[in-house]
Lab assay of single mutants.
Amino acid sequence: MDSLVVLVLCLSCLLLLSLWRQSSGRGKLPPGPTPLPVIGNILQIGIKDISKSLTNLSKVYGPVFTLYFGLKPIVVLHGYEAVKEALIDLGEEFSGRGIFPLAERANRGFGIVFSNGKKWKEIRRFSLMTLRNFGMGKRSIEDRVQEEARCLVEELRKTKASPCDPTFILGCAPCNVICSIIFHKRFDYKDQQFLNLMEKLNENIKILSSPWIQICNNFSPIIDYFPGTHNKLLKNVAFMKSYILEKVKEHQESMDMNNPQDFIDCFLMKMEKEKHNQPSEFTIESLENTAVDLFGAGTETTSTTLRYALLLLLKHPEVTAKVQEEIERVIGRNRSPCMQDRSHMPYTDAVVHEVQRYIDLLPTSLPHAVTCDIKFRNYLIPKGTTILISLTSVLHDNKEFPNPEMFDPHHFLDEGGNFKKSKYFMPFSAGKRICVGEALAGMELFLFLTSILQNFNLKSLVDPKNLDTTPVVNGFASVPPFYQLCFIPV
């Protein structure tokens, strides 16, 4: 009986604490739906499609509103004006990374994606500088992407125009580009180590996009005490870190300090320079996690976009025909596509942009946080508050993009057929937390897609009208449904 009384008292205290925290903070924060004790607004949000729920709530509470995930307040920004004001106009104040408990377990605050403060700034600055020195957006990395595009075309030829699921092959190409940047090595598509790495990356994007992960991140005790797919994700990350550590040891034994070959060499050189400046942010643990982040951000996002792009091109054969006509006119058949071609191919450029806009790969991006107490639109948001960005509300804005739910390359073309930029184009987020590999991803999408369409016609196994382009999961990332196609050599 005594234990029951204690339990009831504990629960009562928890409920009172929950109510007090919510009521004391709500006077400062933007308005929002009334949260339930302990669980907050979790029942009012469709976990399978958070973005749709945010759109519905914005119609009631406006472009800036507050939700509670458990006891934790989260300020939501919906629509271009609110997102721009926060991420661009007040970029420094909104540059923090929001709480992501599962990532905390995986990387302990290291790396480039989930770190904060001085650690994040130094690692991000170093990573950007190193990638630029190796030619991100310049010639040397373009050579690597072109080489991988040629290998991709050869792998597709091996399908002999038979029906195939493109998931694996389209994942190999961007993964190999990242391998060449980090390890100075590309792998054969049949290499077992490479296959294991690909498998872990593919599993992780599916797990991260599941409703279960949303629950884990908002009720963090689940991570330590409950079984579930989150444990598989943590094991996959541990596998990748151990693999990278092996490569780091190989580099330490063979590195030429006067001739760095890749990202690992550059990081080890930085560690050597910083060894007298303790404590340094440049450690082996930081290198492991930064490399894992580059793999995660640079492989599955690009391969998922490529997979979605081919599905949309199957669905819209008239678009595919126009792209192939432009390829034939500008590039021809006797040389590989290059980035200089893009400025002469406005329709193809528009298609690449429209694919990214339409699929809305990361509907709410990753959570941000404010780095200080900030007054925002007459609300006071306390330091450390998590900020949720609705990228969907920007990419699918119906004023900027008429009929935003329709796939239409003319969203990025003017009346004369010239490519038209849009400030609403934010597939990689915006501001200080914009994806480090934005330029690389854009290069890969253009070169891989043009190389495929230069060499193959795409054949659907069903009537294009019957192809479903609805994402199968739409949590962290929008993942396309399973499909097969035939690559018919031109």
Rank of each mutant, 00 (worst) to 15 (best):
I327A: 03
V6Q: 11
E444K: 04
I39K: 01
G437S: 06
N56S: 08
F482G: 09
D341G: 00
K247V: 10
H78P: 02
F282P: 03
G62K: 01
Y424L: 12
D414V: 05
L71M: 10
T167N: 09
G298L: 06
P63V: 02
E122M: 09
L195Y: 06
Q146H: 05
S53D: 13
M240E: 02
D408M: 05
K190R: 13
T301S: 14
E122N: 12
L311S: 01
D397S: 11
F456L: 02
P221Q: 09
Q484E: 14
L17V: 13
T371L: 09
R108N: 09
F282N: 04
P73N: 02
N133L: 11
N236R: 02
M269V: 08
I141C: 03
E300S: 14
V323Y: 03
L195A: 12
N41T: 07
I74G: 02
K270V: 06
N41A: 01
L306F: 03
F482V: 14
D143Q: 14
V330Y: 07
I50P: 11
M240A: 04
F295Q: 01
C172I: 07
P35T: 07
I47L: 15
A477M: 09
L445S: 05
S162W: 06
A149T: 04
L391G: 12
V60E: 12
K118D: 13
L467R: 02
Y243E: 05
E154D: 13
R144G: 05
D468Y: 04
E122Y: 06
L77D: 00
A321W: 10
G298H: 07
I74W: 07
L467T: 05
L313V: 02
L11M: 12
I39G: 04
I178Q: 02
F126L: 08
R21V: 10
I389V: 07
G431S: 05
F267R: 03
T304M: 15
V6C: 08
R329I: 12
L87S: 06
C164H: 10
S365E: 06
I223G: 07
G109P: 12
I387E: 01
D188L: 05
C175Q: 04
K247R: 14
I45G: 04
R125S: 11
K190P: 04
E203H: 06
M426V: 07
K84Q: 07
H396Q: 13
N258R: 14
V113F: 14
F65S: 03
K432E: 09
I331S: 05
Q261I: 09
R329G: 08
T470E: 07
F267T: 04
N378K: 07
G25C: 15
P174W: 01
I207S: 06
N474E: 13
S478Q: 05
F456G: 00
P33C: 00
L313G: 02
V248D: 02
E203P: 06
N133C: 13
Y379P: 00
H353M: 03
V351S: 02
F446Q: 00
A350K: 01
C216G: 11
V323A: 09
L77K: 01
H251N: 06
Q356M: 11
C172M: 13
L312A: 03
G431M: 07
G98L: 06
C164G: 02
Y424V: 07
Y68F: 10
F194E: 00
S365N: 09
E415W: 06
F487L: 02
H230C: 07
N133G: 14
H368L: 05
P427E: 13
L195G: 09
K72G: 03
P63D: 15
P427W: 06
L445K: 02
F282T: 03
K270G: 06
R377V: 01
V145H: 00
N457T: 09
K235V: 06
P317E: 07
V352K: 00
L388A: 06
P37I: 02
K235H: 11
A173M: 01
C151L: 07
F487G: 00
L380R: 14
D341Q: 02
P363E: 04
A350H: 00
P464R: 08
K118S: 11
L234Y: 06
R307V: 06
F100T: 09
N277C: 13
A297M: 10
N218G: 15
L77C: 06
E328Q: 13
S51E: 06
V153M: 06
E281D: 14
R329N: 15
F482D: 15
Y483K: 00
G437L: 15
K118N: 07
Y68V: 03
K160H: 10
F282S: 03
F134T: 15
R329T: 09
A103L: 12
T392A: 13
I123E: 04
L11S: 06
G32D: 00
A309P: 00
F425G: 04
K138D: 08
N41I: 01
L314W: 01
K235F: 06
R105S: 07
N204P: 04
L14T: 11
L294T: 01
K235G: 07
R342H: 05
F419P: 06
M339N: 10
A86V: 06
Y189Q: 03
A86K: 00
I215L: 10
E326S: 01
N403A: 10
V145N: 00
E92D: 10
R307C: 06
F100G: 11
R144L: 14
L366N: 02
